[in-house]
Structure formats: C-alpha cells, structure tokens
Design a binder for these strands. Structure first.
Lengths: 307, 307
DNA sequence: GCGAAGCCATAGCTATTATCTATGGCATCA
DNA sequence: TGATGCCATAGATAATAGCTATGGCTTCGC
C-alpha cells in the first residue's frame, strides 16, 4: 500500500487553500512559512502529484489539488468527529452540548427539565437555541447543534429521531363557548368550528390540524406564540387546541378559560429528540432524551413514550 | 481545539482490534510491541479516554474504544481514498482499474474497445470482471470495482450512472418465420409472438420485454447467453431480440438467420458507465465512458449517447 | 504450589522528522 | 530600478517515533 499523508499535512493544505498563500496559511496554523512549505512539498511527494501552483503572487490549487482538498476536508471533519465521539463515549452527557428546542416546547418543558438535568449531569453544559423545526434540523445537519427537541413525526433527510414523550392536545375556549362545560370532547364536534392556531411554520399548527381533521383554521388570524394564542382565545376570537404540557406549566392559569381533554383515543403529538445521522453525539442525544423522559416522569406529569 | 490523533495511531488501534493483542497487532503493522503500546497510550491521552482493557490474555476494546474504532475505520478509508483520488487526478486513466461489464456487453464491446484504449491510455491496466448488473453494483459499493459498464436505466442506491451509447434492438428469426422478409418491423406485430429471452437476472431480458410491450416471453425456455440464444432461435424454438452491438460483432454471422430493425422510434437500451457515489475514481469512470464512446464512434458503428 | 510462558508497561537510547532561523532567488509594482 | 512580497533552500535544533532490554503481572501445566 502506498504511504498515507499526515492529518497535519491535510490541515496545512486546507489552510493554504483558504488563504491563498504559503506565508499567510502558515501564520494561520501557527507555523513558519518554510515549515508549511516543506509539509506541502512532502504531501505532494507522497501523493505523487503537484497540488499547488506556486506563483509570485501567492499559491493556487491545481485541479488535483482541488480534488484532494475536498477529500482532505472530509477526512479532517471525520477525525474531529472521532475526537468528539471519543470524549462523548468516555464520559457521556458532559461538556458543552448544543440543544435546539422548538418554541412550543421550550418555555414549558425546560423549566421542569433543566434543574433535574443539572443535578444528574453536573458536567453537562447545555447551550439552548429556540427555533422552528426545519431550522433546527438545518442546524443539526450543519453541525451547529448536537441534538434538538421537536414534535414528531417530522421526516427530514439525514436526521434521525426518537420519541420520548406523548403530549396530549386539550381543547381551550371561553366559558361562553357552545362547547364549554363538557367533561370531555368528541373531536367530531369540532366540525366547522373555526380554530385559532399558530402562524405557519410552527409544526404545532399542522399537528393540531391533523389531530382534529374536522376542524378548520381561521385564516384571518394566527398567533406567533402560545401565550399570544391564549390571549386571543380569551378575547373571544375563537377556540384552540393546546398541548397539555403547556397547560400543566400554567399557560392558562388565572385566564378564566375552559380547558377539556378529548375522548379517547386521545389526540396529541409526540415529543422527541432528533440528531444528525452519524453524529458523534448520537448516543448522547438518545441518553439526553431518556434523561428528559425520566425527569418528566419523576415530576409526575402525564404522558408516555411510544417509540 | 483539542489535539487530533495521528492516522498512524488510528491504524494501530484498528490493528489492535483485529488481533486482540498488542504483540500480534504490532507484528501485523511491522513495529515492535512497545511502539504500538506507546502509540495506543498516546492516543488514549489525546482522546482523554481509555480505549483498551489490558488483560493478561490480550487486549479488548472498551465501549469508547469500539466507538472510536468505528470512526477510525472511516477516517482511514477516507484517507486511502484521498490518495487514490490524488493519483487519479494527477494522471487520469492510469494504473490498475477494475472494470465490471455485464455479459451481454462484454464479448461484443470489449474486443472493439480495449485495443483503442490500450493505445490511447498505455498506462491504464484494466482488470475485467464479468457479472450481472446487481452483482457488479455490489462490487462498486464494496469498493471491489472502480467502474462498471451496464445497461441503463437501472436504479440502485449509492450508484451513479452516465449513458454513453444507445444500443438498438434488432429482431432475429429463422427465414421461415412469418415475420421474415420485411425490411423493418412494427413492434405491434410482435403481439402474441412468443420470444426467446435470456434467463432471469440478465437485464437484457427485462429491457427487451420493455422494448416490445406486446411480445411475451416463452416461459419454458430461457438462454444463458446470447450465443446459446441465437442457436436456440436457429433450432426453431422461436424468435428473439438482439442488441445491434452483438449483431455488428458477428453474433449471427453464417447462422442463416433473418435480422431486421424496428420501425422508428427505434427501441433499444442505453449502455452506460456506473460508479459508486463519491468514489475516488468517479471522474475517471466518466472519462473511461467518454473514451469508450469515442472508440465506438471512431470505428464507425451505430448509436448515439443521450445522457 | 511453582516454574514456564505469554502479555503488557517502562526505561533508556537512537534515528527520524518536524520545526525554526537565516537567507537567497524571483517575480511584481511604484 | 529599487522596494516589496512571495516561495525555496540550507543548516541547526527540538520533538518524537521507534528500537532493545527488561521487569511485573497473569495464566497455565505439571
């Protein structure tokens, strides 16, 4: 087998391509120009190909250089992943962990979960980012996030998910609403009932609509958050569906609204954890999901994971 | 950023996992046991994790070790690919090249193409493997092949293809066949005509059936090669479709068979080149396809690529 | 039990090589 | 036509990858 290049050499090549000059690239990787020069030469030697065109005004990669660069970047990324995976495997749920959460989960789940997490995994440093599912998934794919808490199902390429919690939908309306007063509610009674929902982009909107296929969304009003949504309900603009998690967290306390569950089979959404396929922290993402489930069960809320 | 491990260290770890003992692994990579021992220790140091459980009867990877191993293998494979890609980019179409060809193409295309290829790319060493499409694609995926010549369309995961040639189908029958004697043939006249075809697994069988949707395959007889197929036609067992490439190569010479083209739009199959997605020699596979197309055009045969 | 054998770790030395400083040649540009 | 900026080369040095020799620790077989 032919001799392999060094990760160091690949790193140098990447720096060279980024800075377009031996001297500046050398500076960027904290070595002197002759060092980088020699390393690139050595790399060209082991590969048997000229990778760089040296000119008086800097260096440009040859065609072969571009081809090697592309793969070098992959190799380096994989190697860095390996380091992260090793640390994660050696001591799971420790160190910085970038977690994305959708806005219809974050304000209700996190206050309950983070304190427990802090106690159980004191070395874990959770960096939170709140955003819509698709943007969180972009973050996972681009390695800006390690995991995300989202509502399932939500298919997306290169993303893997695992459900950790079932979040039941509750019907919320003003006391003078025709459906007010009942203990439980049959979804069919929502027929032609105009529902207030979150604005487009929030997956809760779609899941709520899917949960009661008979209901229709009011197209003239949409809320930007669950908090504004309940205020709109209170002002008499219509009824809505709320996740039990939000209600349990006190979303409608002292609002004077009627809140009632649906008849079984209960409609709802799955809350799950998501990670990039092949991520170095995939295992940790699963463990985090498990930890969150446990912390929810421990504090005695409703819900049960399915898969 | 944390320090990266060395490719050498990863190679040692892989050897260690394969041999289950420091001493034997060291032997396998041609270093002494203390060298490998120190390297693994250094690797554990940079990763901050114990990767190996040392016992009196050998060494076993820890959980973290297994996780790292998996990624180490990926990194090494990528690095080796980089070397190959560099050589390929530096001097395309040179060195050993493992080419798969399906049986209905190989005997007719290769005698025409290989001599030209040898002249145009004298440093290229083509290693041929003849097999059915699916097995060739397996070979591509498992990196046992660099490219394959197959009939398209043929979808398969992780495989990319490019058409290089159109191979028209011709109708072949005995002189006493009802359809014998015509200059060209309308496909609809094959209705209820029992056709002799290759046995299952040959894509030519499927493509021929697709080409004349009206014809039906004789289910009691199937041939194992185009040569036996024409002999079966000659013995009066039925008519068949043959690729023009095979006819041009003399498949039915001195057989006393009638061979006629179809009316336009002419039915046929696309011959193309296939390679593994992301292969280090993807570019060369394309160039090889181009070279084959040129060599076919140069020798003045029929056909034209579409894309 | 008690050597023998096998395994890994350590110590000390050596060869290699990665890197540095100093310098030279060669373009480009004011 | 210097001045400037760029890369290559030379020589010295520090870092390290590798080797030999050896020791401690199990695990067998007797």
């Amino acid at each position: 087998m032919s001799q392999l290049p060094t990760l160091r050499q690949l790193q140098f090549l990447i720096a060279l391509s980024e800075h377009g000059s031996f001297s500046r690239a050398a500076e960027a990787v904290f070595v002197t120009q002759p060092t980088l020069s020699a390393a690139i030469k050595e790399l060209e030697m082991t590969l048997g190909t000229v990778l760089v065109e040296r000119g008086a005004r800097g260096a440009v990669l040859t065609h072969a250089g571009e081809a090697v660069l592309e793969r070098a970047q992959r190799v380096m990324a994989e190697a860095e992943d390996l380091v992260i995976a090793a640390q994660a495997a050696g001591e799971p749920l420790s160190g910085p962990f970038r977690l994305g959460v959708i806005p219809t989960i974050a304000p209700f789940l996190l206050p309950k979960v983070l304190p427990t997490l802090r106690i159980k995994h004191p070395k874990l440093e959770v960096f939170l980012r709140e955003d819509l599912t698709e943007r969180l998934f972009d973050g996972l794919r681009e390695r800006r996030l390690d995991a995300a808490l989202v509502a399932l199902p939500y298919e997306s390429p290169l993303i893997e998910t695992k459900s950790i919690w079932s979040d039941e939908f509750l019907f919320a309306c003003t006391p003078d609403h025709p459906l007010a007063g009942s203990k439980t509610l049959d979804p069919s009674r929502l027929e032609n009932e105009p529902l207030l929902l979150l604005e487009d982009g929030h997956c809760l909107r779609d899941h709520a609509l899917a949960a009661c296929s008979t209901g229709t969304a009011r197209s003239d009003f949409a809320a930007t958050s669950l908090h504004t949504l309940v205020h709109m309900v209170k002002s008499g603009l219509g009824a809505t569906l709320l996740p039990r998690m939000a209600v349990d967290a006190g979303l409608v306390d002292q609002m004077g609204l009627e809140v009632m569950p649906f008849d079984p089979p209960v409609a709802g959404r799955e809350i799950g954890v998501a990670w990039r396929k092949g991520s170095a922290r995939a295992e940790e993402a699963l463990q985090l999901g498990e930890a969150i489930r446990e912390s929810l069960t421990g504090s005695g809320s409703a819900g049960e994971a399915t898969g």
